[in-house]
């Protein structure tokens, strides 16, 4: 991942790791505001094809705003900068063309409880369907494939209301995959899941990147999981880009302190990077003090 003009991010010298430099997504000088309040300031980075990219940062620093820059309806908050996906300007001239570039999995999707799982996955094909046409053979083949791929075939005839949280998450991802876009964005896909499903979802995303060449950007809260699974991390701090690069190079004590206001120690456990918040002398965390002062 290459980085260009931004406030003061840490740059990586070894940008492409031997791979051919082939960015699928280019974000250049993105700024956003709503009602005069700045949400995002001059954020620029690139994403290589087939990478799983984690977006981390404190609550309220603009992660969701950055994610929603890839949805046409919410895009009007963006007042500066530009986005390119697969060589095409986003948003495209036509909303249907935009829907063929990016698929989106929201943090809390609206689940129509009465809808059949098969129909819900088919919603992902909307941009490819005409007004009067029935679902085409291609639509059925694609939805069938993604349903099978996510182990949902047994649920196809169930209604959405009958599924558990982890199953629903997979169905929503299946819907996004049915859109057959080069780029997939997910807003905190692991936040409401237990540790088992967190690992399941992340390894699924990793497989999609490795095996199918899908490029994924997802916001994550668990920095250790992000470090383990992501090819690249984008750290946002105070509405702007703080650091961006491979996890091993951007997860530093200094960056953790700047991004989360938490003093942390970095350990290696079985070769994996682990971030541990520091305890103060009396066994409490540094952030506890702030609570007592309230």
């Amino acid at each position: 991942m290459k980085l260009f003009l931004s406030e003061n991010p840490e740059t990586e010298s070894d940008i492409s790791g031997g791979k051919e430099h082939n960015p699928l997504v280019k974000i250049d000088g993105l700024s956003a505001a709503v009602n005069g309040e700045l949400l995002l300031k001059d954020v620029s980075f690139e994403i290589e094809k087939g990478d799983l990219v984690g977006l981390v940062g404190k609550n309220g620093v603009g992660k969701t705003t950055l994610i929603q820059a890839f949805i046409e309806g919410a895009h009007r908050r963006i007042y500066g900068g530009k986005i390119e996906i697969a060589g095409k300007r986003f948003p495209a001239k036509n909303i249907k063309e935009s829907a063929k570039l990016v698929a989106y999995v929201p943090q809390r999707p609206n689940i129509p409880k009465q809808m059949l799982v098969a129909d819900y996955v088919m919603l992902g094909r909307t941009a490819y369907q005409g007004y009067l046409a029935q679902s085409s053979a291609l639509d059925l083949r694609i939805t069938g494939e993604v349903t099978e791929q996510l182990n949902l075939t047994d649920f196809a005839a169930h209604t959405m209301g009958e599924l558990s949280g982890g199953e629903l998450q997979r169905v929503v991802i299946a819907r996004a995959l049915a859109q057959k876009t080069p780029f997939l964005i997910l807003d905190e896909p692991t936040t409401s899941l237990d540790i088992y499903y967190q690992l399941t979802v992340l390894s699924l995303l990793k497989q999609l990147c490795l095996l199918q060449g899908v490029t994924v950007l997802c916001s994550l809260h668990d920095i250790n999981l992000a470090a383990k699974y992501c090819d690249q991390l984008v750290i946002l701090g105070q509405k702007s880009l703080l650091a961006c690069g491979r996890p091993s190079s951007v997860i530093t004590k200094e960056n953790i302190q700047r991004a989360f206001s938490v003093d942390a120690d970095l350990h290696f456990v079985n070769g994996e990077l682990v971030v541990m918040p520091q305890l103060t002398g009396d066994g409490s965390y540094a952030t506890d003090v702030a609570l007592e002062e309230l």
Partner: peptide, 10 residues
């Protein structure tokens, strides 16, 4: 599925 998600389907 609501307006925002509908937008993402085109």
């Amino acid at each position: 599925v609501g307006d925002i998600e509908a937008q993402s389907f085109g």
